[in-house]
Design a protein around this nucleic acid. Sequence first.
DNA 1: AATCATGACAACCGCTCTTCC
DNA 2: AGGAAGAGCGGTTGTCATGAT
Length: 306
Amino acid sequence: MGRQPCCDKLGVKKGPWTAEEDKKLIAFIITNGQCCWRAVPKLAGLRRCGKSCRLRWTNYLRPDLKRGLLNQDEEQLVIDLHARLGNRWSKIAARLPGRTDNEIKNHWNTHIKKKLLKMGIDPVTHEPLKPKEDTIISNEDTPASSPQESDALNPSIDIAQPAEAAAPVTDKQPNEKMISETADAGKLLNSDVIIEDPLSLIDCLWDDQEASQIPGFVIEEHSRRLVDGDVMMHHPHDDLQQLPSDQAAGGGRFLMSDLELPDWEESCAWLLDCQDLSIHDYGFGCFSNDFELSSFNSLEVDNKQF
DNA sequence: AATCATGACAACCGCTCTTCC
DNA sequence: AGGAAGAGCGGTTGTCATGAT
């Protein structure tokens, strides 16, 4: 007897989620917490596979998600982590608060990979691309057959540098090697991420976005809208934040920790509403059952009702 | 204006891992 | 210890938007 499928294929809806389905799922999780995903569709009144519900929640509906393109720091971090971890997207995502493995994976495949190739860097090994076979010079001294191995040789690819200079960084002072201060301070990266010149970084990574014309360091933050006729959720910080232009102008080193990352609490007013109800972490399993659906329906977010 | 090509990203599939009995 | 079930992960596909012809 084979394993029972995760869901009954008959009568299970597939394809894009509708706003109505989203609403049902959110309402269910807020009122009941994350329980057995297999039971969720039935209990929530959804004709979806439990797996699909979990994916929808974790990748799209969770309140602690950032939306919008990864900013340049996040891209750098992803590249660095990819060099260390390979395609372990969930591990990489764990280091980027508010980002999902799926989102990072997509961003890697559609943006970063191309940019690295354009820069002459192999996105798999993070080594400079090898020349054609007939011109290959023996490279036996520095084989790098896996991301981990290549990482050991080339611990930090500084994408601000041209491809031929993607080789080991040599003249960095130890105290100049900056570690990204993520929101999850307890999981400090053992990273040598360093950005020498944010503008050249932007030029390299964001050349297709004309970022170099922007007179400051631009961060797109928490941009999330879900429009459902009369339903709208809006995470604040749809606007852009700029750092002082002198900081971005290339004078001196730029520290990731100097970024004015928006305060998470500011960005999630509606979650704080939940916290007011004695909900103190993002594990929605702890939502109290007395948090009525009616409360959810009338939650006010950034002065908007949904 | 219509058609085709391409890019971006949401969603699905199938496999593996973990937990429980 | 071993099997079943649930959850998670990574690769792939599908769909939609946008740009080019």
